[in-house]
């Protein structure tokens, strides 16, 4: 479960990126986070995987208070959270297989198991023939799917995605959303930040709307 209590976040003293955020996202839920550019969506997601520590307030993941985590405890938390970054963050010098394998290498998996698991997920993403390609040779949709494969390969407890459908055509958007749904069906809590209204309208999922760093509309989830 993801919980935030009275969370404030400021990058600079005079302006706040997030103000008085209170929310509870139950385990296994699928939530959209929406709002204009600069509303604080990415900042909120970064708080979930401890890339940022709030200026004030508490962030709890499964009851663990992230503001009290030591630096050495953060890696452990991140291993249970899959993140799809807005800019994908694929390593250009590594192959698709190596990019996805990173998540499992960090966990200490053996080479053979990594190979099997990565190939399996790439097949699920329709990328089995791109295993040895480097990201720069892939289309935007394919790169997005590689980023998704990397986030999902270890079946994380939470999946966080920042504008995952931003630059994709309708067909690719649908494919990506389908992958999110499947992950959610397997028990992963999914939080997707997007400003794409059509994606939200068709999904019939919980929506958290942010405006200038504050939550303005949270049907069913605000605790």
């Amino acid at each position: 479960m993801i919980q935030m209590h009275n969370v404030f976040m400021s990058y600079q003293p005079e302006s706040s990126a997030l103000a008085d955020i209170n929310l509870k996202i139950p385990k296994g839920d699928f939530v959209f986070l929406t709002g204009q550019s600069g509303a604080g969506k990415s900042t909120l997601l970064k708080l979930v995987y401890a890339d940022l520590i709030p200026t004030r307030g508490q962030v709890l993941i499964d009851g663990v208070n992230l503001t009290r985590l030591s630096r050495s405890q953060i890696p452990q938390l991140r291993r249970s959270i899959g993140v799809v970054f807005q800019d994908y963050k694929l390593l250009p010098n590594r192959t698709v297989l190596e990019n996805v394998a990173i998540t499992l290498e960090v966990l200490g998996w053996g080479k053979r198991d990594i190979g099997k698991k990565v190939f399996h997920i790439l097949k699920r993403m329709g990328l089995e023939d791109k295993v040895n390609a480097t990201p720069l040779r892939l289309s935007g949709g394919e790169q997005q799917r590689v980023a998704l494969a990397r986030a999902l390969v270890n079946d994380p407890k939470i999946l966080v995605a920042d504008e995952p459908t931003g630059n994709l055509d309708d067909e690719n958007k649908e494919a990506i959303l389908q992958i999110f749904k499947e992950a959610n069906n397997r028990g992963t809590t999914v939080v997707v930040a997007t400003h794409d209204r059509r994606v939200i309208e068709n999904s019939h999922r919980t929506v958290i709307r942010l405006d200038k760093g504050r939550i303005v509309e949270v049907p069913n989830v605000q605790g």
Binding site: G28, G108, W109, R112, D113, D155, R186, G187, T188
Partner: peptide, 17 residues
């Protein structure tokens, strides 16, 4: 919600040691 989610648990630790 109650589905088991054991993905983050490592199945094998060949690289350890």
């Amino acid at each position: 919600m109650s589905k088991a989610n054991k993905g983050a648990v490592r199945p094998k630790l060949e690289q350890e040691g």
